[in-house]
């Protein structure tokens, strides 16, 4: 479905900055692939480059077998019907002056399948229902909804054009954990039901492990390691991956514990401030 070979993404600057260098990455049809890396690793740049928001300065991007790098006009239009991107901050990625129903409806209109305004409205509502939003949500403006609800709107909008590949760029990073859980559950379900391919991008290794079948690890613009999820997490080959995994907090882990969990704190007299 998606094939990146030797991808290089450079921002013009000044000074020119190469965010991604020599990246090879595959997303098979219907697969969920995870891309994990710390900040500045270039993972978001990859997503932006695929949909034409960042310039591909080298290498190739093949979507559904056809070249997509440096796409112009018509090719770009087609591309944007096959691949869609959901941004990290839903509050920033929705037009504050448009009702969310209108935003989704606009995307439906662009998809071009429904002629009638009434049909489009119905389709927009269907999409909002698909992402578990209540009926009244369509008339709301973004500032009236919570982060989780807005992210659902963003997902609905992305789905409106019937893409086959969904790029999810840190989509739960700005959400509460309970909301994150719901969104992740929703995404997994939608992916299965709609037979979508998905590329999950995140700095959160636990989230990536939970949603992906295959995982790529990025550092400073390059892919450091990749492999099937279970294998990579249980037996990482590269030092960098190991150090990342070692730093992830685990419930009940004892990395920093100096006394056993549940033991009382040291006595008051131990305090040098006395």
């Amino acid at each position: 479905m998606l094939e990146l070979r030797g991808l290089r993404v450079t921002y013009p600057g000044p000074p020119p900055y190469t965010a991604v260098e020599g990246v090879d990455l595959d997303v098979a049809a219907g697969a969920a692939v995870g891309l994990v890396g710390e900040s500045g690793s270039g993972k978001s740049s990859i997503a932006r480059a695929i949909v034409g928001l960042a310039r591909v300065s080298g290498g190739s991007v093949r979507v559904d077998g056809r070249e997509a790098a440096a796409a112009r006009r018509r090719r770009l239009q087609e591309l944007r019907r096959t691949v869609q991107l959901v941004f990290q901050d839903p509050r920033a990625s929705l037009n504050p002056r448009m009702q969310v129903g209108a935003t989704v409806q606009e995307a439906v209109a662009i998809a071009g399948e429904r002629r009638d305004a009434r049909d489009r409205r119905a389709e927009a509502r269907r999409l909002l229902e698909l992402v578990d939003l209540p009926a009244g949500a369509a008339e709301r403006y973004p500032h009236e909804l919570s982060g989780g609800q807005l992210q659902r709107v963003a997902i609905a909008r992305a789905l409106a054009v019937r893409p086959r590949l969904l790029l999810l760029d840190e989509v739960t990073a700005s959400l509460d954990v309970s909301v994150q859980a719901r969104i992740l559950n929703l995404l997994r379900r939608l992916q299965r039901e709609l037979e979508l391919s998905a590329l999950y991008i995140s700095h959160d290794l636990s989230v990536i492990r939970y949603v992906s079948d295959h995982v790529y690890v990025m550092q400073r613009g390059r892919i450091v390691e990749d492999g099937p999820c279970e294998a990579l997490f249980s037996a990482p080959r590269r030092e960098y991956t190991r150090s990342l995994l070692a730093a992830v907090p685990t419930l009940g882990g004892d990395r920093w514990r100096r006394r056993p969990a549940g033991a009382p704190a040291p006595a008051a007299s131990a305090n040098p401030n006395d």
Binding site: A181, L245, P249
Partner: peptide
């Protein structure tokens, strides 16, 4: 809350707990 947070040992086959 405990069930909703994925960590490196979360069961991948099950849905995350929701509040």
């Amino acid at each position: 809350l405990v069930g909703a947070v994925p960590d490196l040992r979360t069961d991948r086959t099950r849905e995350l707990a929701t509040v």
